[in-house]
């Protein structure tokens, strides 16, 4: 009985108005006083009124039935194509029938539970790994290797070990989610230094920034480990495969509301279709990165960074890739411009 009542409420909301308008129009026609004037004038007036009623009927039909249906169909399509999550679908301004809404809410609960279980499982795995590594043991060992190398006169080995220790310290030990751009760039430089031991002069890193804006840029906040995975991706899938010198440029810019970072390489680039597919996946976001694509274009690293940005700042931000076969690739990272104010909590 309750269900019938709920469904009646739903129907009355749209169709009630629709039927009401139609009935009102018909009533006007039925109880209209006999018009004066000639028979032709009366007929014309009645016809005119009939037209108005039909017009209102069509308009009401469009506003209360067709338009909501179109919105619902569009949102469902976006959901099935992966642009919308279940939560977003439920939040979007669509009128569901009460029973459909109930089903969707229940489904959301079930999905949420699975996600929470997955998340806690992954966190537990990560903690276990972190405990196994025992950072202090790792740093002490690396420091030991560095000292031995210095004593043995192997300066480059000492430098390399120092760079590796710095890199791990930043990656493993720092627990905050948001760091400054300056810190991220330092980590990139450290990572690049390690890669240079492998590639030598074949690799070059350029950081381009407007010195006028640098003071504002360097304190801008971004999720930790946003830049390094993108840089790694650019080296491994772009410049490493290229014959001759590989140049990676990091261009830093800010607009009124955004921090824009472009990581560009002069590597092998990618096919148009591959690029479309990658950008489509990044647009859809918040999906489990597909491990099978690893090794092709580094879809996992980019998807991870993109997902983190979108989770923190919203879907208007994230990563977009530009590329042409043989001409290199550019990864554009877009983040809202925020700085840590005095007294702000470390996230």
């Amino acid at each position: 009985m309750n269900r019938i009542r709920e469904n009646m409420k739903y129907i009355s909301f749209r169709a009630g108005l629709f039927l009401g308008l139609t009935l009102a129009g018909l009533l006007i026609l039925l109880f209209l006083p006999e018009p004066g004037g000639s028979a032709m004038q009366a007929l014309l007036r009645r016809k005119g009124l009939l037209l108005v009623v039909v017009g209102l009927f069509l308009l009401a039909g469009y506003v209360f039935l067709i338009k909501p249906y179109r919105v619902l169909a569009g949102q469902s399509r976006r959901f099935t194509e992966g642009y919308l999550s279940l939560a977003e679908l439920l939040e979007s301004p669509v009128m569901y029938s009460p029973s459909s809404e109930k089903t969707l809410r229940h489904l959301e609960k079930l999905v949420g539970m699975t996600d929470a279980i997955d998340l806690s499982k992954r966190q537990a795995q990560y903690r276990a790994l972190q405990n196994q590594i025992n950072p202090h043991f790792l740093y002490n060992t690396l420091d030991g290797i560095r000292s031995e190398a210095l004593l043995g006169g192997m300066d480059s080995l000492a430098d390399m070990t120092e760079a590796l220790a710095t890199f791990f310290r930043y990656t493993i030990s720092r627990t905050e989610n948001l760091v400054t751009l300056e810190e991220e760039l330092e980590n990139c430089n450290t990572y690049f230094k390690i890669q240079q031991y492998r590639f030598g002069d074949r690799l070059r890193l350029e950081i381009v920034r407007d010195m006028e804006d640098w003071e504002e840029l360097r304190t801008a906040l971004l999720p930790k480990l946003t830049l390094q995975p993108v840089l790694e991706n650019s080296i491994i899938h772009g410049t490493e495969l290229r014959l001759g010198e590989g140049v990676t440029r990091i261009v830093l810019e800010r607009t009124l509301h955004r921090l824009v970072i472009r990581v560009r390489d002069n590597g092998v680039g990618m096919e148009e279709e591959q690029l479309r597919e990658l950008n489509r996946k990044l647009s859809q976001g918040l999906q489990e990165p597909d491990n099978s694509s690893h090794g092709k274009q580094g879809g996992v690293a980019l998807a991870n960074v993109n997902n983190r940005i979108r989770l923190i700042f919203g879907e208007e931000y994230g990563i977009h890739v530009y590329s042409m076969l043989g001409q290199g690739t550019e990864v554009e990272i877009s983040i809202p411009y925020t700085v840590r104010k005095r007294g702000d909590q470390v996230l």
């Binding site: 002069n266 148009e272 690029l275 530009y322 042409m324 043989g326 001409q327």
Partner: peptide, 24 residues
């Protein structure tokens, strides 16, 4: 711009970038 997408953006002052764009 190709097939409804922007495939590449380049600063024309940068010779390498503009050369790549022209090539493509």
């Amino acid at each position: 711009f190709t097939n409804g997408s922007v495939a590449m953006v380049a600063e024309l002052e940068n010779r390498e970038e503009s050369g790549a764009l022209e090539q493509s």
